[in-house]
Nucleic acid binder design. Sequence first.
RNA 1: CGGAGUGUAGCGCAGCUUGGUAGCGCGCCACGUUCGGGACGUGGAGGUCCGGGGUUCAAAUCCCCGCACUCCGACCA
Length: 575
Amino acid sequence: MYGMRMSEAFVPTLREVPAEAEIVSHQLALRAGLLRRSSAGVYTHLPLGYRTLKKIMQIIREELDAIGAQELMLPIVQPAELWRASGRWDAYGAEMFRLKDRHDREYCLGPTHEEIITALVGAEVDSYRQLPLSLYQIQNKYRDEIRPRFGVIRGREFIMKDAYSFDRDPEGLNETYERFFRAYQRIFARCGLTVHAVEADSGAIGGSHTHEFMVLAEVGEDRIVHCPQCGYAANVEKAVAVPTPWPVTASGGQAEAVATPGVRTIDELEAFLGVPANRMIKTLFYLADGEPVAALVRGDRELNEVKLATALGATRLEMAPPERIEELTGAPVGFSGPVGLSGVRIVADHEVVGALDAVAGANAADAHLIHLDWGRDFAADVACDLRTAVPGDTCPSCREAALEGASGIEVGQVFQLGTKYSEALGARFKDAEGKEQPIWMGCYGIGVTRTMAAIIEQHHDDDGIIWPVTVAPYQAIVVPIKATDADQMEAAKKVYEQLWTAGIDAVLDDRDERPGVKFKDADLIGFPVRITVGPKALAEGRVEVRWRDNRREERPLLSEVVGVVQAGLRERARF
RNA sequence: CGGAGUGUAGCGCAGCUUGGUAGCGCGCCACGUUCGGGACGUGGAGGUCCGGGGUUCAAAUCCCCGCACUCCGACCA
C-alpha cells in the first residue's frame, strides 16, 4: 500500500500570511495550500482544496439525488441569441463575460443557466406526463464582478451547483420548492455549517418567492435583520420597513428659503443648519424605463431600488444622470427637493407622508427650504415602502419586537421563478385536456467554492483550519515523530494502512522534519485527528490520538487505534 | 468607473527622499550538529528591481506613458 505521503504531496503551506489576503478564511486557504490566485478573482484549487470541494459536491449530489433531481452538464459557452430571447443579454450588463467567435458570432460565458436549461426542456418536454422534472449541474460560472474580493467568496470564476425544477402548476412548484428547501438544510448541516434561511429579494433573476441561506459571519457582504421574538428573518433589501412616526408633531410655520452655499450632502446640511437628518427629505431622481421619477425618503434613510422598481412596475431602473437632474429641477445636484416639481412622477416613502417642519432642497443653486409641511408645501403621487430596513425597526411580522442586525455570507438561494423564462423561451407542455401551458419553474443555487470559504470562516482557530470531518480533505494524519526511526516508521505505516483499510481518508507524514514543523502543518491544514507515533507511547505499544477541535488526546494500544479513530469520527459526523 | 496604495529572489519586506550597478528575514540546495510544537552552524543557488519610453557619464531610485494587483467607494444629493 502506498497511498498519500506528505513527503510527496503537493501541499505548499506558507509560514507567513500572504499580503493579498484580507480575511481569515482566505489567508488560511492560501497558507494551508488549498488555493492559489491566478488573476483577480480567479483561483486554482490545489489538491487539498479540491478534495474538500469534491466532498462538498458529493454531499450536494447525495441530497439532491435523494429528492429525485437528476444531474446533467450544461455548456459554459452560451449563444447570445438565447439571452436576447429572455431579455437578459442587455439586462445583465457589464457583469457578463462576452466573447465572439471567428465568425463574429456573440457568446457569453455562462453567469447562470436558466436560458440554456429552459431552451433544452422546452424542446424536449411536450406533455404533462413528463413533469415534474428537476435537473441540476455542478459547473463553473463566470461573472465579471465589479470588484472581486475576499478570495473565493466573491470570485469571477467559481463553482456553483445550480438546479432547475419544472412543474405543471404553482402547487407543484410549491411542493418542489419545499423539497429543495429541506434538502438545502440537510446539505449545509452536513457541511458543518450553521445557516439561516432568510426571506430575500429576487433581484434581476426575476420571480417571486425566494429564500437565501446565510452563514452568519462578520465578513459577510449581505446584511440581514431578524426578529428575536417571532423568528422573522430577511435580507435588509427585502425586509418590509415598518415606518416610524415623523419626529416632530408641529408645523414650523411658513416655508422659507435659506442660503446654503456649497452644502450638497445630508451630512453637510445637518452640520450647516443644525437640523437632524431625520427631518430632511431626500429627493432622488431615477429613470424608470426611461421615464423620470422623483423618490422621497427621510434624510437618514437609504432608498431601496428594488422596492422602488417594484412600486413603479419598472423593468429597468437607473439613476438619472446629473444633467437630467439639472434639467428637471433647474438646480445642480445637491439642491433637489419635492416642492414645485413638474413633469416628474413623485413617489414617497411612507415615512415622509405627514412630514412637518421638514427641510429639502429648493431646486435652486445654493439654497434649501425649511419649515416644509406635507400637503401644504408638497405631496406625492404615490406613497409606499421605499426604504431599506435597518436594525431597530419594528418587526413587520409580529409588530412587537425590534429587529436585530447581522451580516452573512450567502451560500445558497432558492427561487420560485414561475413562468417568466418558460414564457420568454417558449417552454410549454400540453396538459391533460390537451391545452398548451407554460411550465412552472424554480431554480436553486449553491455557491460551492464560497461554501468552502464559509466553512473555514466558521471553523478555525489561531493555529489554522478545523475541518468538520464530513468535508475535511483527509480525516486523519499519521505523524511519526522521527522519520528516520525504523520502529516508528513501521508502526506509523501500519496504523496508516489500517485506517485506509477501514475506509478512513488518511495521510502519512513521512517527511524527515522536526516534529514541531509537522505538528504546525497538521494544525494549519486542520486534519480532524492526528495520530502521533512517538518513542514514549510506542514503548508501551501505544500511540497518541489527538483531536483537532477540542485538542483532547487519548493513548490507545496499537490494536485499538482504528476503533478509537472511527468512533471519534463517527461522533463528529452525526447530525 | 472614481479615490488611495502597492509592484524589488518562492513568501514577507528594506533600499527610492539625497542617482553610483541590490539587500534582510523566512523558504530552497549541500554538509555537519540537532530532533515531542515552525532548530543551529558553515557554504551555496536564486533577481528582465512590473513593462515601455525619456533625462543623465550613470536609473530600482528622477520624469512621462502603459500594465497588474490590493484596499475604500460607487443611490446616500
